[in-house]
Structures are given as structure tokens and as C-alpha cells.
């Protein structure tokens, strides 16, 4: 009987592929939210597997804060071309220029919160009824309650207290005009699962995930990359460190860790012994204990 056991990684893969196929079958106009980070790259890889030998039947949507790591953008452009999928870019800069969103002020200003405006506008403009994201329940405590198929009302808002129950493997993606779903095929994956999967599938990633030398400043207990988009205070010193990033987001808020892990094997070992969550270095989550939940209710990723 034990022949008929899947390893946990294979079972998670099978589950994610099942979810992606359900999205294709149940929705008219789905898209993949593609940030160029490892989780969305995993989703893309799984989508490739789910529909093989067809191409991925969803366009990619990138919400561009304008404050990107150049490495992420290069990776994104090459990857999209290789897969032959359509790329739709929602520009936060444009939302600001149009007056739909207002830029934060001050030293720790960032564009994290206002991404939601651009995201929701892009969804509305293209009429997407399902947006597939790479969020995982282990990332953050508000995410721990997300459904695989997570309903959003006509304002794009999440109502955590009134979610549809999900039983067995039957998913209900029915919605009214103007509403949409966020779908999370990696719900049951942990950071470690994602890295193990990347290693076992040999999935290509942006170079930022691997240890490299970079100019950084020390701020809020993390190494923040020096870029044109951050203001450096008088008492802040620019130093060069060997770091790597555990998550990739907006360059102004994504801190790196000192590390020598420059191969996937070394990263897996590092993740296995990590004592901090990967979001521990995200300025956006540190603002208050419920900042993720508050943003998610508004319609954030």
C-alpha cells in the first residue's frame, strides 16, 4: 500500500494544479498576479504544469510600484517572453499622476498601501473575475484564514468574518457581476516547501534571492538596499554587505539578510535554520500588529 503514497511536496503540487485547473474551468477571465517574487514564480511554474502541453491560459498582471529592483524587472520580462504569455502592467505612478492615489510623505514613506488602488483599478479595467496570487497561509496570521477561493465584493474588499466555507475539494467560484475572487494555490505551502520545490524542480529565480554584495543602510533592524527611491538620513551610513533577500517587494521596503547562501542548496539549509519569519524584514508588516489584516480587508494582495 505504501507504494501509493505521495510525498508532501508532490501532494501540495497536485493540490495547486487542481486549484489552477478549477480556476480555468470556473471563471471567464482569470489572471495571475505576478510580482517576480519566488511565490508567484512558483505559481507560474505550476500553471505551466497544469495545462501542459498548452501554454498558460492566463495573462500575468504586474502591479508596478515604480520602485523596482532592476533585477526583478529583467527577470519578469524574460520569463514572460519565454512562456509566451501576455503581460499587463498596472502602474502605481500612473494612479498617483491621475490623482487616484496619494503618495505617502516622510522618511519611511513607501508605496505599499497605495498599490491596492492600482491593483483594484487594473482588475476593474480588464474585468478580471479571478486573480491568482502566490500568498501562503503561513506568511502572516491574517492570511492563515484565507480560503483557496477568496471572495471580494464589488469594492474589492475582503470580509474575513463572512467567508464561504470550503469543504473537501469542491470550490465555489460563483460571483455576481463586478465581484471577483482571489485564488491562492499555494495556501498550504510554507516558505520551506516553496524553497524545497524550487530546488527539486530547479526553477530559475531572480539573482536577488542569492547572496550578493550590495550597498545597504541599517534601518529598522534590517539591511535596506540603497536606491534612488529612499532618503538616507544624516546619521545613516552606506556600507557594502553580502546579503540576500528572502522576499522581494518594493525596493524601498524590502530588507535583506546577511548571508553566504549563493546556491539553492545553501538557501534551503539557511531557511531550515532561520529563526525569523521571512516577512520579519518587511517594513509594511511592522507598522502594527494587524497591518496585514487591515490592508487585506481593503483589497490588498
Amino acid at each position: 500500500m505504501s507504494n501509493y503514497n505521495l510525498t508532501h511536496i508532490k501532494e501540495l503540487e497536485a493540490e495547486a494544479i487542481y486549484i489552477l485547473r478549477e480556476v480555468f474551468a470556473q471563471f471567464e477571465n482569470p489572471a495571475i498576479l505576478f510580482s517576480g517574487g519566488k511565490d508567484s514564480i512558483c505559481v507560474a511554474h505550476l500553471a505551466r504544469k497544469a495545462f501542459f502541453p498548452s501554454k498558460i491560459p492566463f495573462p500575468f498582471v504586474h502591479v508596478d510600484t515604480g520602485h523596482n529592483f532592476p533585477e526583478t524587472m529583467d527577470f519578469r520580462n524574460k520569463y514572460v517572453e519565454e512562456l509566451g504569455v501576455k503581460l499587463i502592467v498596472g502602474s502605481v505612478q500612473k494612479s498617483i499622476d491621475d490623482g487616484a492615489a496619494a503618495e505617502e510623505k516622510g522618511k519611511n514613506a513607501n508605496r505599499n498601501a497605495i498599490q491596492t488602488v492600482t491593483l483594484l483599478d487594473t482588475i476593474e479595467e480588464h474585468g478580471f473575475d479571478a486573480c491568482i496570487g502566490g500568498a501562503r497561509r503561513d506568511e502572516e496570521k491574517a492570511r492563515a484564514k484565507e480560503r483557496f477561493f477568496s471572495h471580494r465584493d464589488e469594492f474589492g474588499q475582503w470580509d474575513p468574518k463572512n467567508q464561504r466555507p470550503e469543504l473537501w475539494n469542491i470550490f465555489n467560484g460563483r460571483c455576481h457581476q463586478g465581484e471577483h475572487f482571489r485564488v491562492f494555490p499555494l495556501s498550504n505551502w510554507t516558505e520551506m516547501d516553496v524553497w524545497q520545490y524550487i530546488l527539486s524542480e530547479n526553477i530559475a529565480l531572480p539573482s536577488l534571492y542569492f547572496a550578493h554584495e550590495r550597498q545597504v543602510i541599517r534601518r529598522s533592524n534590517t539591511w535596506l538596499p540603497v536606491s534612488d527611491y529612499i532618503q538616507i538620513g544624516d546619521n545613516e551610513e552606506i556600507v557594502t554587505k553580502k546579503i540576500r533577500f528572502r522576499t522581494l517587494g518594493d525596493i524601498t521596503i524590502t530588507g535583506g539578510d546577511e548571508s553566504d547562501a549563493d546556491t539553492l542548496e545553501k538557501i534551503v539549509d539557511e531557511v531550515a535554520s532561520a529563526r525569523q519569519t521571512e516577512r520579519g524584514n518587511r517594513e509594511d508588516d511592522k507598522r502594527s500588529e494587524t497591518s496585514m489584516e487591515d490592508r487585506k480587508k481593503q483589497g490588498y494582495f
Partner: peptide, 29 residues
Amino acid sequence: TDGLKDEREQGITIDVAYRYFATPKRKFI
């Protein structure tokens, strides 16, 4: 294991929340 704000305020768990942990033998959901 207290997930959402409302719950933290009321001190009760109100919905299904998922947790993950692993030992060298198994991964648990």
C-alpha cells in the same frame, strides 16, 4: 494561534484557521 483582530479583541477563535509545522518525518496541516 489567534488569527484575526476581532478575535484578538474578543479573545476567541471565530473561524477555521490553518497552521503548519513540520518534523523530519511529516509535514502537518
